[in-house]
Design a protein around this nucleic acid. Structure first.
Length: 568
RNA sequence: CGGGAUGUGGCUCAGUUUGGUAGAGCACUACGUUCGGGACGUAGGGGCCGCAGGUUCAAAUCCUGUCAUCCCGACCA
């Protein structure tokens, strides 16, 4: 491609709307343009990269035995009504009506459609196992789109669904996808981690996320350097630790604690440490109320709590009025003694001695409280959020933490959709069985942003060869020098003849402008035909390298090709 | 959905406090000089000052409403 003909509107200045590196660079390098919040157009360079990502995904999915198909993005309401998700999705679904006032939506995800497709078209158990996938545009009306392409309202996703006759089959299908995903992200040049993830209230034994480590990531990763354990923060199991040296149980005492309704204020007024307190937090789970207890220095993990109580829909902090009614006190003085709702205590609370709790009476707390003697929780379980330094649940070493961008998720769905939609089969004994499903997603557009987030410097993008819009960029340094231009054109032609994605900067621009743009758009190899052209010498530079090296014109194409092949 | 901020030419922003009829840099067009890390000079083109009301002799500027965008949080199959 000739740059003089390429729609590549690079920006010298940073658009005010962009906060993070990938967003800034995608705008500056002319990859995308915004149409509305969370809605972007892909310009030629951006599209080429997006396509290359898709091609890699396609190759690896096909290699793993999955079949590609394509569902509509425009879907009738009925598709989601049987599974109940027409309601569940609520505001985050783009809804519309056709001219006959029938309800439609723009598909946010396609579990139901794939399940229905199999129901309609697969007639015999002999056709299983089967894995289907598509690369498709999804629509979600995010409450808050952000970070450019990382969290947008229209995005490209690869979603795959496996259909198996039994659990053992699902394990095999899942494993194949696990391996395919590892190959895909490696080929995309991403530095990623696989973490255990939450599988939601609907159960399911396996769920793993592929995370690209990045400070701008929206998910927390807890990991262990020693044994390699890694989990989503929400999922990470917590090993309870006792803080107090063993001591005698003391007499329980009611104490006056005026206006001390936070742990901080209690610590101030009583001169104790946060870990001497147990906080009791009132939640509304769907339409009933429950209490959760964790140590004063811990936080409740709402995902764990939600899974534990089997709360399907909504788990939220109780409204202040409800708290006052339940505890007979101002907000901030809740405690388990005499509380009329179920109490879920964290394992660590069960290990505490002589601790302090709210007394369900305004401005009053109890001290020297002991579990079982003074109250008995209905359930004791792991319901807290992991913190850095906690013991690794596998080997006990201190846990570390990092932020990550979720680029892939593989998940054993089980029979959620096959049950609700009726995907069954007759086995060889004529007995009716339910098909078992898995689902596997990759945020394709998000991968592009994640790659840039991880691979850039102050000057611009540093594309890995596999997804670079072009592989080699040829620059005649002085466009008025006929010798340089002719040599550059010849080199460009040779690269193209070798099947390399080559780009030539044939614009009537000064060298400085061309170099700046070259760095910004991040083409992996740059060949500059300049002053030493007459001696048969040009400059070879890899975008990731600091320095350029001189090479003969004769060798340049070989050198470039070798690098491309090696890193593709 | 709660909190905060911002809307002025394609981009970055000044002008708003103290109303007086719109400006800079970059980009664009033409010519000349320059020519290996975003050149310089001269001359140009381009703006319903987000939108709608209101106050006023006069509104980018003050008031009311509304829309949009960004940031923090909540939410996130």
């Amino acid at each position: 491609m000739r740059m003089s003909k390429l729609l590549m509107p690079t920006l010298r200045e940073v658009p005010a709307e962009a906060e993070i590196a990938s967003h800034r660079l995608m705008l500056r390098a002319g990859l995308i343009r915004k149409l509305a919040a969370g809605v972007y157009s892909y310009l030629p360079l951006g599209l080429r990269t997006l396509r290359k990502v898709q091609d890699i995904i396609r190759e690896e999915m096909d290699r793993a035995g999955a079949q590609e198909l394509l569902m509509s993005a425009l879907l009738p309401a009925e598709a989601y009504q049987a599974s109940g998700r027409w309601e569940v999705f609520g505001q985050s679904m783009f809804r519309l009506k056709d001219r006959g006032e029938r309800d439609f939506c723009l598909g946010p995800t396609h579990e139901e459609l794939f399940t229905q497709c199999v129901i309609d078209n697969v007639k015999s158990y002999k056709e299983y196992p089967m894995t289907l996938y598509q690369i498709q545009t999804k629509y979600r009306d995010e409450a808050r789109p952000r970070f450019g392409i990382i969290r947008s309202r229209e995005f490209v996703m690869k979603d795959a669904y496996s259909f198996d006759l039994d659990e053992k089959g699902l394990d095999i299908s899942y494993q194949k996808m696990y391996e395919a995903y590892n190959r895909i992200f490696k080929r995309l040049g991403l530095d990623f981690t696989v973490v255990d993830a939450d599988s939601g209230a609907m159960g399911g034994s396996g769920s793993q996320e592929f995370m690209v480590k990045s400070p701008v990531g929206e998910d927390g990763i807890a990991y262990c350097e020693k044994c390699g354990y890694a989990a989503n923060y929400e999922k990470c199991e917590c090993i309870p630790t006792a803080v107090d040296a063993p001591e005698e149980e003391k007499e329980r005492e009611k104490i006056h604690t005026p206006d001390a309704h936070t742990i901080d204020e209690l610590v101030q007024s009583l001169g104790m440490k946060p870990e001497n307190f147990a906080k009791t937090i009132i939640y509304r789970a769907d339409d009933k109320y429950i209490a959760a207890m964790v140590r004063g220095d811990r936080d409740v993990n709402e995902v764990k709590l939600k899974n534990l109580i089997g709360c399907v829909d909504d788990l939220e902090l109780a409204e202040p009025d409800a708290v006052r009614e339940i505890t007979n006190a101002k907000v901030g003085f809740a405690g388990p003694i005499g509380l009329g709702i179920p109490v879920y205590a964290d394992k660590e609370v069960a290990m505490m001695k002589n601790f302090i709790i709210g007394a369900n009476e305004s401005d009053m707390h109890y001290k020297n409280v002991n579990i079982d003697r003074d109250f008995t929780p209905d359930v004791v379980a792991d319901i807290r959020v992991v913190v850095t330094g906690d013991a690794c649940p596998v080997c006990g070493e201190p846990i570390k933490s990092e932020q990550g961008i979720e680029v892939g998720h593989i998940f054993k769905l089980g029979t959620k959709y096959s049950d609700s939609l009726g995907l069954k089969y007759l086995d060889e004994n004529g007995k009716q069985q339910t098909v078992i499903m898995g689902c596997y997603g990759i945020g394709v557009t998000r991968c592009v942003a994640a790659a840039i987030e991880q691979l850039h410097d102050d000057d611009g993008i540093i594309w890995p060869v596999s997804i670079a819009p072009y592989e080699v960029l040829v620059i005649p340094a002085n466009y008025k020098n006929d010798e340089q231009v002719a040599a550059a054109e010849k080199l460009y032609q040779e690269l193209k003849d070798r099947g390399i994605d080559a780009l030539i900067d044939d614009r009537a621009e000064r060298a400085g402008v061309k170099f700046k743009d070259a760095d910004l758009i991040g083409i992996p190899v740059r060949l500059v035909v300049g002053k030493k052209c007459g001696e048969g010498i040009i400059e070879y530079k890899e975008r990731s390298a600091k320095e350029a090296i001189e090479t003969s014109i004769a060798d340049a194409a070989d050198k470039a090709e070798e690098f491309i092949k090696k890193n593709k």
